Computed example of a mutant assay.
Amino acid sequence: MRMLELKTDPLAAVFDAPETWGEVTAPVVETPLTRPALEAKAVTITPPAKGGLSVPLEIDAVINRVLLAASPIRSIAQVVDIGSSAYRRLITTSGVVSGWVSETQARPETETPNFSEIAPPMGELYANPAASQAMLDDAGFNVEAWLGEEIGREFARAEGVAFVTGDGVNKPRGFLTAPTAATADLTRPFGTLQFITSGAAGNFAATNPQDRLIDMVHALASPYRQGAVWVMNSATLARIRKFKTTDGAFIWQPGLGPEQPQTLLGHRVVEVDAMPDVAADSLSIAFGNFQAGYLISQRAETTVLKDPYSNKPYVHFYATRRVGGTVLDSRAIKLMRFSV
Rank of each mutant, 00 (worst) to 15 (best):
R225G: 06
Y314K: 15
V327S: 01
R331K: 05
A139R: 03
E124W: 06
A40M: 10
T320S: 07
I73Y: 01
R173H: 04
D215G: 05
G83M: 10
L265N: 06
D329N: 04
K41I: 09
E19L: 09
I118C: 03
P48W: 10
G52I: 01
K334M: 08
A26D: 13
R239Q: 15
T25Q: 14
A280G: 01
P32L: 15
R239P: 07
R337G: 01
W21A: 15
N170P: 07
P276I: 02
H316F: 13
T34S: 12
G140R: 05
A134F: 06
G202M: 01
V101C: 04
F287P: 01
D215K: 00
R188L: 00
Y126L: 03
E39Y: 07
V28A: 12
T31C: 10
V14D: 12
P10Y: 15
I285P: 06
P261T: 03
L237N: 10
Y126V: 07
D211A: 14
W146A: 06
V24N: 14
L328T: 00
V14W: 06
V55D: 04
A228D: 02
A106F: 12
S98Q: 10
P276N: 02
R74A: 04
R74F: 12
P32Y: 11
V14C: 11
V28T: 08
D138S: 11
W146R: 05
A156D: 07
R321D: 06
I63W: 04
A42P: 07
S102C: 03
R35G: 12
T44L: 09
G166Y: 00
D247S: 08
Q210V: 10
I59V: 12
S98C: 05
T236I: 08
G160L: 02
A12F: 14
M1T: 14
V231A: 06
T207W: 04
N142P: 00
V217F: 02
R268C: 00
A139H: 02
P36G: 02
P121D: 01
L67I: 14
D247G: 07
E124S: 10
E144Q: 10
P27H: 11
A134S: 13
L33C: 10
E124K: 15
M216Q: 04
I59Y: 11
P36R: 03
P276S: 03
S222L: 12
P121S: 02
G148Q: 09
A249R: 15
V80C: 05
L265Y: 08
I196K: 00
H316A: 13
A286C: 04
P121Y: 00
L57A: 10
R74V: 09
W100V: 12
A134Y: 07
T207L: 02
E19I: 09
W252H: 03
E271W: 08
A228K: 06
T197M: 05
L335D: 04
I118Y: 05
A42H: 13
P129L: 03
N311Y: 06
G140N: 09
A131V: 09
T92Y: 15
Q78T: 15
V28N: 10
F250T: 13
T44G: 12
A274P: 07
E5Q: 13
P258I: 15
V270C: 03
V143Q: 00
V169I: 11
L33K: 14
D138N: 14
A158R: 09
R225K: 06
S71V: 03
R153V: 08
P258C: 01
E39A: 14
Q260A: 14
M216S: 02
P254T: 09
N142Y: 02
D16M: 11
T187Y: 03
W100M: 09
T110G: 10
D16Y: 07
